[in-house]
């Protein structure tokens, strides 16, 4: 059985500073990530957003708190769905690779999200719909 964290890696054809700005600067994040109202890459900073982009839909309300910042290297925040009392952690790490940037995304604790009273299936549907919207937006 596996309780290992979810780890995804990408190499981007962009300098590390540009990738860091894209993942940590509010104006840049809003263009590809979430429509965040506010974000500061400072340990302890708390922010909230809606996983399906719909403010009426409390089921997808997500709270996050920055837990680690190493400018140009590492950014981590907790990620908890208000509907499920479990805290997961999302960590972004950047590594320079000959002018390109390797990004390692780690999402830990997903298996601890309790299923009891938690609308997992409808949540999946929400993400799918949201990601569809994102694709449409990006292909404009």
């Amino acid at each position: 059985m596996s309780t290992a964290p979810l780890v995804l890696e990408r190499v981007y054809n962009a300098p590390i500073g540009k990738v860091w700005t894209a993942i940590s600067d509010l104006e840049h994040m809003r263009k590809w990530y979430f429509k965040l109202d506010e974000f500061k890459a400072e340990v302890g900073f708390e922010f909230h957003f809606y996983g399906d982009g719909n403010k009426e839909n409390l089921k997808y309300a997500t709270s996050a708190r920055v837990v680690a910042v190493e400018p140009g290297k590492k950014l981590a925040y907790t990620w908890s769905l208000d509907a499920a009392p479990a805290i997961t952690t999302v960590t972004w790490e950047l590594f320079e690779e000959g002018g390109n940037t390797r990004l390692v995304l780690t999402h830990e604790g997903l298996e601890t999200i309790p299923g009891t009273d938690y609308p997992r299936d409808s949540f999946n549907g929400g993400w799918t719909s949201f990601m569809g919207k994102l694709d449409n937006y990006l292909s404009l």
Binding site: A14, V19, I23, W32, L103, H107, I113, N124, M131
Partner: peptide, 26 residues
């Protein structure tokens, strides 16, 4: 498999996000 399915959901989600980041960076 209920657990791996759940984690796969996030895998799909983050893969799309990382694609979006790539498009944004380019």
């Amino acid at each position: 498999t209920e657990v791996t399915d759940w984690i796969d959901t996030f895998k799909v989600f983050w893969t799309k996000k990382l694609d979006a980041l790539g498009d944004f960076l380019e």
